[in-house]
Amino acid sequence: MVKSMTGFGRSQKESNDYSITVEIKTVNHRFCEYNIRMPRQLLKIEDKIKKQLGDYVQRGRIEVFVTIEGSGAVHRKVNIDWSLLEEYFQYIQQVKNKYDLQQDISIQDLLQRGEWLQVDEVESENEELINLVFIAVEEAANQLVSMRISEGNELELDIRHQLTSLEGIIEQLKQYSPLVVSQYRERLAKRMNEFLNGSFDEQRLMTEVAIFADKADINEELTRLKSHISQFVETLSLPEPIGRKLDFLLQEMNREVNTIGSKANDSKIAKEVVELKSLLEKLKEQIQNIE
Rank of each mutant, 00 (worst) to 15 (best):
L205T: 14
L188H: 04
N97Q: 15
I242R: 07
K174H: 11
E127I: 09
I169T: 12
M253D: 06
T223L: 12
E281V: 10
G168T: 11
I159V: 12
E127H: 10
I68T: 06
F134C: 02
V64I: 05
G243C: 08
G60H: 01
I36N: 01
I169S: 09
L222A: 04
Y56V: 00
L283R: 04
S150M: 09
R148S: 00
I107W: 04
L53D: 01
S150C: 00
K50R: 08
R204T: 15
L276T: 02
S267F: 13
D17K: 13
Q203H: 07
V66N: 03
L84P: 06
S199F: 11
I287C: 07
L43T: 12
L276E: 04
Q251F: 08
G243W: 04
C32W: 04
R10Q: 14
E186N: 14
K245P: 10
Y176R: 14
Q41N: 14
I105L: 05
Q288N: 14
R187F: 04
E138A: 12
I20R: 02
E46I: 01
T6I: 05
V145C: 05
S165L: 14
K277L: 10
A189Q: 13
V27F: 05
S71A: 13
N254S: 14
L173Y: 02
T223I: 11
Q108M: 12
K277W: 05
L276M: 12
E186M: 10
K98M: 09
E281S: 13
G54Y: 00
S11Q: 02
R185G: 10
D100G: 13
L117W: 02
N28M: 00
T26K: 03
V137K: 02
L157S: 11
L155K: 04
N126G: 05
D100E: 15
S165F: 10
W82H: 13
R244N: 04
T164D: 11
Q231K: 11
H75Y: 05
Y56R: 01
E275K: 15
S150L: 09
G114K: 13
E115W: 08
M253C: 15
K282P: 06
P239F: 05
I229T: 09
K50V: 01
L42F: 02
K51H: 03
I92V: 09
L225A: 06
G60V: 04
G70E: 01
G9L: 04
K263Y: 08
E171K: 13
D109G: 10
D81G: 03
K226T: 07
Y18A: 05
E171W: 08
S83P: 15
D104Q: 11
L179A: 10
M147C: 06
F232R: 06
R61D: 00
E171P: 11
S165K: 14
A270R: 06
M253K: 10
Q93I: 07
E202Q: 12
Y176F: 14
N153M: 12
K13D: 10
E139S: 07
L157C: 05
E252K: 14
D266C: 09
N265K: 12
L222C: 07
G72M: 09
V119N: 02
A141N: 03
E63P: 08
E208P: 09
P239V: 07
G72E: 07
S182G: 09
K50H: 00
N79Q: 14
T207F: 00
S177R: 08
T259S: 06
N79I: 15
S124F: 00
Y99I: 01
V233I: 15
